[in-house]
Simulated scan of single mutants.
Amino acid sequence: MLALYRRYADAILATLPAKRLLALDALRGLTITAMILVNNPGSWSYVYGPLRHADWHGWTVTDLIFPFFIVIVGMSLQLSLQRQSTVSKAVIIKQGALRSLKLIGLGLFLVLFYYNFRDASYNYIEQKLLALRWFGVLQRIGVVYFFSLLIVLYCGVRGRILWLVGLCAVYLAAMLFVPYQDAYGNRFTGLLQFGNSFAAWLDHTVLGANHVYYRSATPFAFDPEGLWSTLPAIASCLSGVLIAQWLQADRSLVQKIRGLLLCGVVAVWLAELWHFSLPINKSLWTPSFVLLSSGYCAIALAACIWLCDVKRWRRWSAPFVVFGANAILFFMFAGIAARLLGMISVGPGSLQSWLFNHLYQPVLGSYNGSLAFALSFLLLSYLLMHWCYKRGYIFKV
């Protein structure tokens, strides 16, 4: 079995260009794999703590997944622009705008791809189309990517650092000092509560309570991928740009790894200290969360480079290369498949609940069964992604 996997892994790795940064491909694949794993349990009632998001302030491993992907977008952006040094800025911006719009469109498609067949009174127009959630994971990636692209095109290293710091500063200034009020005239300032912050007020006011994720939050409905928290999310992407620039510089591999580790450890340490005055919070995407997640991403990348390029232990990365190469297709397939499992009726419930209640839970128990369901979902997804990879079908936006 081990010899078979070695041959398989070698065949996957042999398809990569000689100068391609395997560590980044592996980290991207690990990140999207983790994202799909935590998004598809057998039952949301039975999920182990590390596979859940923090209730509010604080963080779990799951909270790091999305910002990792945002940071990786920044790294990929910088590496891609280096390969397009002869292309005009106008062309790059046009291509970037189109890519951004495609990501936003795909995100909206996933939001709309649902119908409740078990409810005879379900009205798709009123309950889905007219209550469309405008923001989400792919929408945020699209917006963050485009604005990061503009900053990178027109600013040097110093300008990118200033934008990173400035975006966090402007975000924080509004969160702490700009007053706002609810429908009853109650005024608030500087709160970072669930449903009561400047970011929540802005989402509630601009997007409307029916078009965000936390619709029942009070006094303000809000979205964890909402308007104001997009500013520090752009800062996260710019941290990825700076990481890629560090890797592109003329220095030894060992120096690059040491630099990533040093910056990562210092960033995490500062973020944890900052947490006492500015809580680490993913839903608000606080600057302390930017520091923490970017720091851990730098540490994770350093570990991948050390494994792949220093120790030359590369075969472990092959499955993640497959997932990472088609990250958007993987995300779209997982989203559609998960919705279909919830839409298809079996008896009084959905196909997913039937599979969990009749196959996984009786054999493995509630929590292990829910995790096993997610792992099975990953395995079936991998078969499709591997089929696409072998045939050279890479879905790019």
Rank of each mutant, 00 (worst) to 15 (best):
L2Y: 15
R7N: 15
A9F: 02
A11P: 04
P17S: 09
R20W: 08
L21S: 10
L22Y: 07
T31P: 04
M35A: 09
M35P: 10
V38Q: 02
N40Y: 09
G42I: 00
W44T: 03
W44D: 09
S45M: 13
W59E: 00
W59R: 03
P67R: 05
P67L: 00
F69Y: 08
V71A: 15
I72D: 04
V73F: 10
S76V: 15
L79M: 14
S88I: 06
K89D: 13
K89R: 14
A90K: 11
V91G: 00
V91H: 11
I93L: 12
L98Y: 11
R99C: 09
L103H: 08
I104D: 11
G105H: 08
N116L: 06
F117S: 14
A120P: 07
Y122C: 10
K128L: 12
L132R: 01
L138C: 11
V144P: 00
V144D: 01
Y145W: 05
Y154P: 04
C155D: 06
G159I: 05
R160E: 14
L162F: 10
L162R: 07
L162C: 06
L164S: 13
L164M: 14
G166P: 00
G166M: 04
A173S: 14
A183R: 10
N186S: 15
N186Q: 15
T189V: 15
L191S: 10
N196I: 02
S197W: 02
F198Y: 13
W201M: 12
W201A: 14
Y213T: 12
A217S: 07
F220P: 07
P224R: 00
G226P: 01
G226E: 00
G226Q: 08
P232E: 08
A235S: 15
V241D: 09
L242D: 03
Q245T: 10
W246G: 06
D250M: 04
Q255W: 01
K256C: 08
R258K: 12
G264D: 13
V265W: 09
V266I: 15
A271L: 01
K282D: 01
V290C: 07
L292V: 01
S294K: 05
I299Q: 02
W316F: 15
F331P: 04
M332V: 14
G335M: 03
G342P: 08
V346D: 14
G347Y: 05
G349S: 14
S350F: 00
W354P: 04
Y360N: 03
L364D: 09
G365L: 01
N368I: 08
S370R: 00
F373H: 05
L378F: 01
L380E: 12
L383Y: 11
F395C: 12
F395P: 13
K396D: 15
V397D: 12
